[in-house]
Design a protein around this nucleic acid. Structure first.
Lengths: 198, 198
DNA sequence: CTTCCACTATGACCACGGTCATAATAGCGG
DNA sequence: CCGCTATTATGACCGTGGTCATAGTGGAAG
């Protein structure tokens, strides 16, 4: 959330991600992005000659890298990491946001997928890349915790799928219930995948 | 998928759901809905005086009832229903569609949530109602299979969350991998919840 | 036949928004 | 001071799309 003193270009990408996750891609205007980023409107065509499509794609890419980076920080915060604890942290990020800041925003990658998967090929690819960038570190983390390599990827996909779906339900219901529920139900399964021999 | 010979009003609601799940709410035009439904444009304001918001809300409601109805048909098709088999059927509906018809469409309820959760209160409520209408039968089915009542609701939420997320990933990747993966990974957990005493 | 209502037809209005054209400014090296 | 490039400023264009106003049609009841 720290809008550090980066250049206007980065601020616009960041702001685009923020607005997209709130209103969706189609409902987010470029002028709106510039205003939100306190960036000059003229910079839009200068930094993003590819137009809205380019800006959206970069915002999605940013979101993917952000999610991937969070995984590392979650692990660093866990004294004894286990799969269920990692998942709990991932879920907690959302429950915390929803409880303190309201249910305004969802996942920007999900928004891009819903709005552009069929219409804009490059954005669909950006979303797929973002999911991959996110799944990778989660899978690696599971391996480090003792989950067999051949299973880790599948469990990472399961974790992210479940989280994304729970985010949707939580936003619709304006209640973190779905998030806390899936964290509790999925935890034991995740931990049971740890190879006890290690 | 059977666009039976219903009245133009129903056809428009149905078509709205179809187009929404493909392009999202914001990118779906009312004129487009009328054309897709082979309905006269003038009927829009006649049947939906509440405008686009009303049409979208009814489409979301329709989707919720449709999903709820599918649950019953899935159960009827299963000789020996188990939680994992029900979930496999729910997933299979999507893999079948994606493999035969392509990855054009997602879940209309998810689309409505992403596009309207923050901007349009009534649509957000419609989405929540749709999720509830869907979760109910799933939960009931789990109870019938021997899952303790106090656990069934949570598992139903888990199933639908996971499915929704996997749909998103599958569409982004244009690959059913995420869907088949979550079906395989979640199955054992679901079955382990049935009370063995029954 | 006429009256009335449900339904359809159609054009216009207006706001929004992505994009483009065209310039102005601002440092900065020469 | 002179270009030169990077950036910013603005206004205009034009398609899209939701909504409204107004009128036409058609069948059924009286």
């Amino acid at each position: 959330m720290a809008m550090s003193e980066r250049g206007p270009r980065e601020r616009m990408v960041f702001s685009a991600a923020q607005l997209i996750r709130r209103d969706g891609v189609a409902s987010t205007g470029m002028r709106e992005v510039a205003v939100h980023a306190s960036a000059p409107r003229g910079s839009l065509q200068h930094y993003f000659p590819g137009g809205k499509e380019q800006l959206v794609n970069e915002a999605v890419g940013w979101a993917g890298r952000y999610a991937a980076g969070r995984v590392g920080r979650f692990l660093a915060a866990l004294p004894e990491p286990t799969p269920s604890r990692l998942f709990a942290q991932m879920v907690r990020q959302w429950t915390d946001e929803y409880e303190t800041a309201g249910f305004a925003g969802g996942c920007p990658v999900a928004a891009a997928t819903v709005d552009c998967a069929e219409s804009t090929g490059s954005t669909r690819e950006a979303a797929a890349a973002a999911f991959a960038a996110w799944t990778g570190p989660v899978s690696e983390a599971l391996v480090d915790m003792g989950v067999p390599r051949e299973r880790a990827g599948a469990l990472a996909t399961l974790m992210i799928s479940t989280l994304e779906g729970a985010i949707l339900m939580a936003r619709a219901e304006r209640d973190v219930r779905a998030l806390t529920t899936v964290a509790g139900e999925l935890g034991p399964l995740l931990d049971s995948a740890v190879d006890k021999a290690l």
